[in-house]
Design a protein around this nucleic acid. Structure first.
Lengths: 141, 141
DNA sequence: CTCGGTGCAAACTCTTTGCATTGAC
DNA sequence: GTCAATGCAAAGAGTTTGCACCGAG
């Protein structure tokens, strides 16, 4: 387990539940659902409750430390620490999430007037079939 | 109401419910939730049921006629007809969805080997504050 | 007539909320 | 001791499923 580095907002208490959820997110290699975070947190420390995980996540999002997302073709919310500039490819068959290593947005200026929208960030998502599903499905007919 | 153009998959019956949902999607200017589609469909034809809307949407997605998405910061699934090449800016405060008129992906080749992932499409999403929310929030402190 | 689609109810999953209690500071 | 955070239960959204009936082809 990595050391909890970084920011700790003023007035926020260092409970083991929050430390635990934060550590799970720090070590995650892809965005996780609340359920997944809950499971991993339980593996580290039995005394976490799912509703507490949701509350901590809301808190983290409110503080700007985490980001709430959702990928194509699924209606479950996913969470990851913010700051990381990550983009994914999502398999619409098995819902596997694959990290992209380059970003098309570096030079992109959206056609919205500056004062019509204050851009905080962006998301890019490719969707299609991962190799395994592509094989499986094209072998089917 | 626009004419239902385009494809009708073989073996699919032209029920008024399906025609109605399809027409709602054709006339939508942004992705809609199942609830929104349900409301609009009811306005056109009283006899549609929410579960039927879900079933028709699943059907359309399965046939590749529609796409199921979800935007940042919300866990409700949204649907739109596929083929349209649309990208959005999403206000993380009021959840307003604003259409972008240009696309950064036109020349983008993601760093995934061709045979590791078969790309069907992509999504781009800016997030931040729309003008109204930005005003409101910056006036607050 | 047949079989896919629909009405309707009930179940299920994901997420939020209320309240008494706990524990960080 | 104080107040934020948690445990736990129960409610609330959003979504899916089962089954009998209906109606497009």
């Amino acid at each position: 387990m990595k050391e909890n580095s970084s920011v700790w907002p003023a007035g926020v208490r260092k409970t083991k539940q929050r430390l635990c959820v934060f550590s799970v997110l720090e070590n995650a290699k892809r965005p996780l659902s609340a359920q997944e975070i809950f499971s991993r947190a339980q593996a580290e420390d039995a005394s976490v409750w799912l509703s507490t995980v949701y509350r901590i996540l809301d808190h983290l999002v409110g503080e700007g430390l985490a980001v709430k997302t959702a990928v194509m073709d699924s209606s479950t919310a996913l969470y990851e620490l913010s700051g990381g500039h990550r983009h994914y490819a999502v398999c619409v068959n098995c819902h596997r999430v694959i990290e992209l290593t380059n970003c098309p947005m570096e030079k992109f200026v959206p056609e919205i007037a500056e004062n019509d929208f204050r851009v905080l960030g962006h998301r890019v998502e490719m969707y299609g079939y991962c190799r395994d599903c592509d094989k499986k499905l094209s072998g089917m007919h």
